[in-house]
């Protein structure tokens, strides 16, 4: 099976992009793919503690992220500079690896398939 990298770089709730990327990541994992999710740019807001999706009639994205290990997605990564630029405070139940740009470049290079949906 291939190594999949799903990159989410759009803000949660502003569009369905983050949810749809995570759905695809879960399907790839269900097919025994080796799946990693990388949050960067505005996508790092998905980690923010204290989200309440039902306030705008949506599911809470950080809750979906906490469920990733149950779908055998154990690699949740985030761009360290995107996090610090936005002063994001991650949900305490999330286990996140913070990567610098060189580490992200290596992650992309080592992945067989990169799915972004980004321009």
């Amino acid at each position: 099976m291939k190594r999949y990298l799903f990159i989410i770089s759009r803000a949660p709730y502003a569009s369905s992009h983050a949810f749809e990327q995570l759905e695809a990541a879960m399907v790839a994992a269900a097919f025994d793919g080796d799946v990693c999710v990388l949050l960067r740019d505005e996508g790092v807001w998905a980690l923010q503690a204290g989200q309440k999706g039902p306030a705008i009639a949506q599911k809470t994205l950080s809750k979906v992220l906490t469920a990733l290990p149950s779908y055998e997605i154990d690699q949740l990564c985030a761009c360290a500079s995107s996090i610090s630029a936005r002063d994001v405070t991650a949900h305490p139940e999330l286990s996140v690896s913070y990567l610098d740009l060189a580490q992200q470049a290596r992650l992309i290079k080592e992945s067989d398939v990169v799915i972004t949906g980004q321009p």
Partner: peptide, 21 residues
């Protein structure tokens, strides 16, 4: 088709290319 068909196509292909919005 289900999302599984996307993954199946990727698994069976040499290259995966996406055309973003």
């Amino acid at each position: 088709v289900g999302l599984g068909q996307l993954i199946a196509a990727i698994e069976g292909a040499d290259r995966y290319i996406e055309f973003p919005a």
